[in-house]
Nucleic acid binder design. Structure first.
Length: 177
DNA sequence: CCCTGATTCGC
DNA sequence: GCGAATCAGG
């Protein structure tokens, strides 16, 4: 797969959008997340929202070394002002001393049956359950996020909900509990 | 375990 | 320039 102008553009857009490398790779198709990351670096658009320069002094070469492996674990660059999540900033926030129950401002139905992780579009991968929960127009909306079997877009529970067996009406015998 | 990005280096 | 392998962390 070649990095056409369009693909590079899409890559740039998605990367700026905050999508992960693997997600972008899946979106583009034909490339792995490594390819995406490599390209991102080559394009010098790493770090996403981090104008602060980070001249890290990498000194590793464990690839073709005649010796064992260098134990040079120098990490002189721990500074990382991550600003990826673009959430609305709340200037003042009353600290709610109750970590117990979240009030339910939205009148969403209690569709959540299994323990739902608060998966957003950003955390969805090919292996996370994409069962939508809540109203997409509210911030309460999220996805199940449970791990799903390979290829299946939903977790086991939601798979059964999604693909309700229409067949299997005849054979309902000897199903001992 | 799953995932994330970062880096290196042979191609 | 490209990206697999690898690393390092969550």
């Amino acid at each position: 797969m070649t990095w056409t102008d369009e693909r590079v553009e899409l890559l740039t857009k998605l990367w700026a959008d905050g999508l992960s490398a693997s997600q972008i790779a899946a979106e583009l198709g034909g490339v792995t997340r490594n390819a995406v990351i490599g390209k991102v670096h080559r394009l010098s658009l790493s770090g996403r929202a981090k104008p602060a320069s980070t001249p890290a002094a990498r000194t590793r070469k464990p690839a073709t070394a005649s010796n064992g492996r260098s134990v040079t674990t120098g990490r002189p660059n721990p500074v990382r002002p991550l600003v990826a999540g673009n959430t609305v900033l709340k200037p003042m926030t009353q600290i709610a001393p109750e970590p117990r129950r979240m009030p339910r401002p939205v009148g969403s139905d209690d569709v959540v049956v299994p323990i739902s992780l608060h998966a957003t579009i950003l955390t969805l991968t090919e292996q996370t359950c994409k069962w939508p929960i809540g109203d997409p127009s509210t911030e309460d909306f999220h996805f199940c996020g449970q791990r799903s079997s390979s290829g299946i877009p939903y977790c086991e529970y939601h798979s059964r909900v999604a693909y309700q067996p229409v067949h299997d009406r005849r054979q309902k015998k000897a199903v001992g509990a």
